[in-house]
Design a protein around this nucleic acid. Sequence first.
DNA 1: GATGAAAAGTAGTGACC
DNA 2: GGTCACTACTTTTCATC
Lengths: 153, 153
Amino acid sequence: MALTKADREILKLMQQDATITLNELAERVGLSPSSAQRRLQKLREDRVILRDVSIVDPKKVGTAVSMLVEVELERDRPELMPPFLRWLADTPEVQEAWGTSGRGDFTLVILVQSVEHFDVLADRMMEMNPNIRKFTTSVVLKTLKRTLAVHVE
Amino acid sequence: MALTKADREILKLMQQDATITLNELAERVGLSPSSAQRRLQKLREDRVILRDVSIVDPKKVGTAVSMLVEVELERDRPELMPPFLRWLADTPEVQEAWGTSGRGDFTLVILVQSVEHFDVLADRMMEMNPNIRKFTTSVVLKTLKRTLAVHVE
DNA sequence: GATGAAAAGTAGTGACC
DNA sequence: GGTCACTACTTTTCATC
């Protein structure tokens, strides 16, 4: 499943604006609309493009506090790992979660309406996950950049 | 610019799948297609919805190493702040960047093809930004969740 | 095996109620 | 906010390279 130059161009453009029409897309990558459409369809079939989503401004819907949370788990309780993963998946305030090397075991990006909401959430997190040894929180003062766009050569 | 119940439903659905048709959307929020369209249009005009983008699987395009980087800046060189912000904006490998309280001043999410690429990038970062006092790097071992979706009540 | 042109089908838009 | 007519976009077909 090698990517052509046109494929890469399509990915670049679609990551910027997925509402672009096939005519525009075709023109900008130097293909006919039907060819562009077929390439795009194949990129979706091959799961290179996973999905298209709208990006919502948190401030406009009343959720404006982001937190970076580093969580350290008890390593000797592996049976509590699946519930923790499920908690991450099921908690919509958790936007992102990575398992990392280094200091903390996990780093989470959490988006809530207020610090009070975070407090409640953190309490619930500890309550539901007794394998959390400790966690440290950084308040986001300023979001400078936010994209899931992948740099395509 | 108060959000109606239908608006919130629209945001929820569009954050999951922005390729949904107006007919589907209308049906699921209990409006006519043209009403749904008008609400959607207004959400875009009011910049509640900022844009629509395709989500690309990094593994499928050969970029598969994520790093979390905490950067600490010299506080007494404010004139070097704008260049740093420009570097963040102009470097496509930097997916996300926050200014935070707590230990580090800034936290970055960086996506590269390999650790070797990260090395080159980190060197360049230090070279171009002499106000970086130090930085610490965590390698992402596992990405558990990744979304920019905002939880809409 | 993929492309482009053109036809057929579907979805989005805007005027009107 | 809903209905309808119009326009634009997407998808398929078909011939071609």
